[in-house]
Amino acid sequence: MGRNLQTGRRLRPIDLARGHGLSTQAVRNYEEAGVLPAAARTAHGHRIYTPLHAAALRAFLALLPGHGHPAAASIMRAVHRGANDEAFRLIDEGHARLLEDRRTLEAVERALRDLAPSGGGARGRAGGPPGQGGVFIGPLAGSLGVRPATLRAWERAGLVQPRREPRTGYRVYDEADVRDVRLAHQLRRGGYLLEQIAPLIARVRTAGGLEPLRGALDDWRARLADRGRALLAGAAGLEAYLRERG
C-alpha cells in the first residue's frame, strides 16, 4: 500500500497546503525539516509530492495539538528514519507529562480541601505579635510541625514573602502568607519539589486567594481533558499514517 501511495498521482505544494490553512512555503519547510518524507524532483528541480506526503502532513497536524510543534516534528522525523520505537517513546512521554499534570492538579485540589477556612483562626492558633495582625516564624513553624529553617528555605524559593517587623527585623506572616505556607506544606507532604510548588503558589497570589483559584482549577481540568483527547487523536493519526506507509 505504501508503494502505491508513493507512486500515485503527483501533487503540488498547493495541493497539500489547501484545506489545512497552510502556505506552500510551510509545506516545503516541513519537508526540509523531515516532518514529511523527502520528495522526488523533476528535471527542473520542482518537488513531486504524492498522497503519502499528504498522509504525513495529516499525521503531523493530528499530533500537533497534543504534543506541540517540537515533539510532533521529532515524532515524524523518527518515523521517516525508520526509528518507530523512538517515535513511540516520544508519544509515551507526552502521555506521561499529561499524567504528571493531572497528579499536580489533584495535589492542589487536595491541598485546598485540607486548608481550613483561615479567617482570624490561623493568627490566633499561631500566636501573632500584639497589634501587628501577623504571625512570627517560630509559632507558625510550630503549628505546622516544621522547623523555622524550613520556612526560611521556602522564602528563598519564592513560595512565601513575609514582611519584616520594622523594629526587630523579625519575619511577620500575614493571613495570605499563612495561607501560602499551609498550601506549600500540603504540597510538600504530597512529594512535590519547591520548584514545582512555586508556580502554583504564584497562581494563588495572582488569583487573589483560594476561592478565585477554584475557577482556574476548573479551567485547568478542562484543558487537561482537551489535551487528553488531542493525544488520542494524534495517536490515531500517526497509526493511520504508519498503515499507509506499509
Rank of each mutant, 00 (worst) to 15 (best):
G131Y: 08
A78T: 12
R97C: 13
R123N: 01
D85W: 04
E86V: 07
G121M: 05
V108Y: 07
V108L: 05
R81Y: 02
R102Q: 13
G134L: 10
V108P: 01
L105G: 04
L90C: 10
E100F: 02
D101V: 05
V135S: 01
R123A: 01
L90A: 10
A107C: 12
A122V: 02
S118N: 12
E109K: 10
V135R: 00
A126D: 03
R77W: 01
G128K: 01
H95W: 15
G128W: 01
R77M: 03
R110M: 02
A111Q: 00
E100K: 01
E100S: 04
V135H: 01
L90I: 12
R103A: 09
V135Y: 05
A107G: 14
H80D: 08
E109W: 06
R81F: 09
G120H: 00
E106V: 15
R125S: 05
E93L: 13
E100Q: 04
R123F: 00
R81I: 02
G120Y: 02
G127D: 10
G131L: 12
P130L: 13
G121S: 08
L105A: 11
T104V: 14
L90V: 13
D101I: 11
E86C: 13
R102G: 13
G124T: 11
E109Y: 07
V135G: 00
E100L: 07
R103E: 08
G128D: 00
E106N: 14
G124Y: 09
R123G: 00
N84I: 15
D101Q: 07
R125W: 02
L115T: 06
Q132M: 15
R103C: 04
L90G: 12
E93A: 14
S118V: 09
F88Q: 14
S118P: 12
L99P: 04
L115N: 08
E86M: 15
A78L: 05
V108S: 04
V135D: 01
D85A: 11
A87T: 10
G128Y: 02
A111S: 06
A78K: 13
R81K: 11
G133C: 01
R81Q: 14
I91Q: 12
A96E: 10
G82H: 08
A111V: 02
A111C: 02
G121W: 11
V79M: 04
F136V: 08
G120V: 10
R103F: 08
R113T: 09
A122N: 02
L90Q: 11
A83T: 01
G82C: 07
F88E: 09
H80V: 04
G94Q: 02
D85Y: 07
V108K: 10
R113N: 06
R102F: 09
F136M: 06
R113V: 11
Q132T: 12
A122P: 01
G94D: 03
A83V: 03
L99G: 12
A122I: 03
